[in-house]
Design a protein around this nucleic acid. Structure first.
Length: 466
RNA sequence: GGUGGGUUGGCCGAGAGGCGAGGCAACGGACUGCAAAUCCGUGUACACCGGUUCAAAUCCGGUACCCACCUCCA
């Protein structure tokens, strides 16, 4: 079996066949940088990071582009409230996003274009759409340019809706639109908006509409046609539907496959900026190990909702302990020298089945059990084989503690110094144990526990961990 | 009104016609100076009502409740 994915456009699971042999191009919608990312946002990053790792593991040369929307209504409104320039807020939040990527072990995209850096590309694309009869400047002199949804017969194909069934746009005021469902490609600047937030165009000063950005930037960096377009489920409509219509109407093949991840929910409801129920990534990573958070996000399938709960995060932390305890017992060290052949067949099958991380994680734990059994039986060869498999799986999921992406969490210099200090103390304790002075031995263990060091006596000697 | 998803054991969470995914918690046992870790064992779950089938958590029909999108949202 080869990689199969659920393609949102057709509603079917299909075999993944790249447009160009050996290469995969992925575009997923980044954030509108108006506030610090919450767990739901970072779930998308983790999902697409694993997708990228999985395709890379199979030898594909993977290119990932994720945009940064650094100008929009909300950014203008929020920055005004906070007394900041819009670009100050946008950049500060972009840095927050990067911190969150790094915190959860996500590799940054190959390119991360900002909307404001691609105004001329967007103007060109808008002009093409006007020339082709799919867009028109607003008839009310606002300087807006709209996409004419009625001019594109396939409009609605991604979200499986018919134009006439769609609820009319909430703003009943159609402004200069021919149909209330027409959407803005270009927004004429308004008198109350800062001068720095508008750019010259054939239709007067203004700024691009949100949907247009992704069409223009994917075209620039990935070409007229690319493999996979991803994003959160809430982008399916209207954002992705609109992107698809625009790009196709402009003569581009656009995305071959569409993947959407489900939400992180809070008391059953979607975590979102507008509901204000989001849990900011940095708050979570302060309370739980970052790798446990990542494991928690990969536990359920990417198309299932994840309910946020401290209990689940605590369970993920316990799972991580189980993993790390095995790695410690089996003597894992250094970076993984990964080969696809090291992965168990069931794991490969799970990942090929639409990125089935739940089944993949189950294989991981099965293998850990086998490895532990082998260690109990002093079967070093089997234990080593299990260790190799476990580390290959962890590497694929981005969970290997020795992966460079986690390097920031413990400096090597510090680790070796602590190592030496702990060894000194443990030497005292083992002397006490040798003379059966259990009180002293236990007191040392308790004191180390009080500062966060766990001591375990094993057949192979004493092991400690933070 | 349109479109899509969900309801699984104490908890989380997979699966999608027939062998109890996996984890957490709990209980019993092995090991251990004690602890920890580890291993072994213990569970008769699939919202409700009908139907199809030798066999249904899984398929079909219906009911209830929940969620998402159709407005900025990962």
């Amino acid at each position: 079996m080869s990689f199969h994915l659920y393609d949102e456009r057709t509603g079917q699971q299909t075999e993944f066949i790249p447009l160009r042999p050996g290469e995969v191009s992925i575009y997923h919608c980044g954030l509108t940088v108006q506030s610090a990312p919450h767990l739901g946002h970072i779930r998308k990053e983790v999902v697409f990071d694993v997708l990228r790792r999985w395709l890379s593991a199979q030898g594909y040369d993977v290119t990932v582009v994720a945009n940064i929307t650094d100008i929009d209504d909300k950014i203008l409104a929020k920055s005004a409230d906070q007394g900041l320039e819009w670009y100050e807020l946008a950049y500060a939040m972009e840095l927050e996003l990067h911190r969150a990527y790094a915190a959860l072990g996500c590799q940054p995209p190959n390119y991360e274009p900002r909307a404001t850096g691609h105004i001329s590309e967007m103007i060109e694309l808008t002009q093409t759409l006007i020339e082709r009869g799919h867009a028109y400047p607003a008839e009310d002199g606002s300087g807006d340019v709209y996409f004419d949804v009625r001019s594109w017969p396939d409009y609605g194909e991604l979200s499986n809706q018919r134009i006439d069934d769609m609820a009319p746009a909430a703003d009943a005021d159609p402004r200069g639109k021919r149909d209330p469902r027409d959407f803005a490609l270009w927004k004429g600047s308004k008198p109350n908006e800062p001068a720095t937030a508008s750019w010259p165009s054939p239709w007067g000063r203004g700024r691009p509409g949100w949907h247009l950005e992704c069409s223009a930037m994917s075209l620039k960096y990935l070409g007229s046609e690319f493999d996979i377009h991803g994003g959160g489920l809430d982008l399916r409509f209207p954002h992705h539907e609109n992107e698809l219509a625009q790009s196709r109407a402009a003569g581009h093949g656009f995305a071959k496959y569409w993947m959407h991840n489900a939400f992180v929910t809070m008391a059953g409801e979607k975590m979102s900026k507008s509901l204000g129920n989001g849990t900011v990534v940095t708050e979570v990573t302060q309370q739980y190990p970052a790798r446990a958070v990542r494991l928690y996000l990969l536990g359920p399938h990417y198309r299932s909702a994840i309910e946020f709960s401290p209990t689940s995060l605590a369970e993920a932390t316990a799972q991580l302990d189980r993993i790390d305890s095995f790695l410690g017992r089996a003597g894992a060290s250094g970076q993984v020298d990964f080969e696809l052949a090291q992965l168990p067949g069931d794991f490969v099958e799970a990942m090929d089945d639409d990125l089935g991380t739940p089944a993949a994680v189950a294989v991981l734990f099965d293998t850990i059990k086998q490895g532990n059994r082998a260690l109990d039986a002093a079967d070093r060869a089997s234990a080593d084989q299990a260790l190799t498999q476990v580390r290959a799986m962890l590497h694929t999921l981005g969970l290997d503690p020795h992966d460079p992406v986690w390097a920031g969490s413990a400096g090597d210099d510090l680790t070796s110094a602590v190592d030496g200090l702990v060894a000194l103390v443990l030497e005292q304790r083992s002397q006490a144990r040798a003379r059966k002075d259990w009180a002293t031995a236990d007191a040392i263990r308790d004191q180390l526990a009080a500062i966060g060091l766990t001591i375990e006596d094993t057949a192979d000697g004493v092991r400690w961990s933070l």
